[in-house]
Design a protein around this nucleic acid. Structure first.
Lengths: 251, 251
DNA sequence: CGGGCGTTTGAATCAAATCAATTGGAGTGG
DNA sequence: CCACTCCAATTGATTTGATTCAAACGCCCG
């Protein structure tokens, strides 16, 4: 189930189409179930719009029906940290359940369709519809797994590998949603990527340049926002190369 | 609700006794509720024992009634990362819900009493006992918040501050469980602490030495496993000092 | 066309990792 | 009880990867 593991287990590191299709189906089923049983209010947001803010009273969970957003944690002393990225089918706001207020800001990074799920209504509905509870728990479970993968990446990978792993994660997220992942548009600045990965914007830029020089990624002719990924497996291979500096000529 | 925020908001950085007492009560209430409604099997484990392993089929959640353990993520390429520490009242195994198998190892770090909660039975019981569902969701929510705080710490703090923040987190965890927190016994080696914090064991050792030199912590006469923390607020202050290198003489 | 922001790239600096040596306790067995 | 071993921890010297500081470039938009 782990991204790296999945890529590794495959013969040639190519995406597991069957698995991705199942993911895509699961998300569609979940959205259909939520739509039918709860008729959630929809909120259309644009890049930069705030979905909720840290400190606001927790009442709703949110589900992204389309678009893309970031979760930003702000510490008491002013440090700001992007702690999560959310795509279609992801839930937002779980951190508010225990403390009765949100602990982070959720900011749209693109035009998005956000479904508003009243938490009390959801719990109520869960009682009559066990499938609802299942999707809720699975979503929380997945978030916990993903957060651990993030921590793992930040703690164990050097900067270049972290950037490569970030792109792999992004491509993987798109593939799991049935979207093409050979051409991705990063709707984040280098500074935001760096913040998310725990490094400076210059280091992100250098890492991307190195990835491009090694032909692991390509840039569109105009602008460096669009990244071309000919082979997702090559990103995983690049990560491995970063980790094994003294193990080259073996044949 | 965030640890750092809490400490900051206090007049003198001292622990918030009322809040801690509420936490302690909440945990006791939760354990009582679980014990009464589910009569979970108990498993006594000793330091080093495996509670579950990554890859095993998910069937149970676990709740620590006493003791202490670590959650270890193992990547496909062999990197090993401590991604969480669990104390009395904490739940283990949430990451298995979505994928039907555990994604990490859970290893006891001390003699512990682990309650085994069959997941299906729990869901069943939730239907009749909404309070059960509440504690379950709160536990997952808290884990998500905590994971984000970890990521924040690793991404934004220099090594010394990260170690200080780690000790603050540990002391805070004890306080929230009604235990004394001025004298803590780290049941982890420097290497394990370093792994958790994303640094080498030498860096952990140096950071601890510096904290001791600055009188923020003290070591027991014999052995360096026991750490004396005269004032938890001083740890937060130390973190701030690390972040503000050029702001000393202001009066 | 010019201003402003985001990005790239280079050079210098710095924090942390690595390499290496020593110390200190805990445990074992004579 | 002491000698011996083993492993954790400390501390110093050196190297290295990433940050910082600085300059230039390119793209978008008014």
């Amino acid at each position: 189930m782990f991204n790296a593991a999945t890529a590794q287990a495959r013969p040639a590191g190519r995406p597991d189409d069957a698995e991705n299709q199942r993911s895509s189906q699961r998300i569609a089923d979940m959205l259909r179930l939520l739509g039918e049983t709860l008729q959630p209010a929809r909120r259309l947001v644009r890049a930069g719009d705030v979905i909720y803010r840290a400190g606001e009273r927790f009442q709703n969970l949110y589900v992204l029906n389309s678009g893309f957003c970031k979760i930003v944690n702000l510490s008491a002393d002013g440090r700001e940290q992007v702690v999560g990225l959310k795509f279609r089918g992801d839930w937002l706001g779980f951190d508010g359940i225990a403390s009765t207020q949100y602990g982070c800001d959720a900011i749209a990074m693109d035009t998005s369709d956000v479904w508003v799920i009243g938490y009390d209504a959801l719990l109520q509905a869960c009682l009559g519809r066990p499938a609802l509870m299942t999707v809720l728990h699975e979503a929380m479970s997945r978030e916990i797994s993903r957060d651990r993968d993030s921590l793992m990446s930040v703690c164990t990978l050097p900067a270049d590998a972290r950037v490569a792993d970030f792109l792999r994660y992004w491509a993987d997220s798109l593939a799991k949603r049935g979207l093409r992942c050979d051409q991705i548009t990063l709707r984040m600045t280098r500074a935001e990527i760096g913040n998310y990965l725990g490094m400076t914007l210059e280091t992100v830029s250098r890492a991307l340049s190195r990835l491009a020089r090694d032909k692991v990624i390509g840039f569109a002719e105009k602008g460096r926002r669009d990244v071309h990924i000919p082979d997702v497996g090559a990103l995983s291979a690049f990560v491995q190369r970063c980790l094994a500096p003294a193990a080259l000529a073996v044949h």
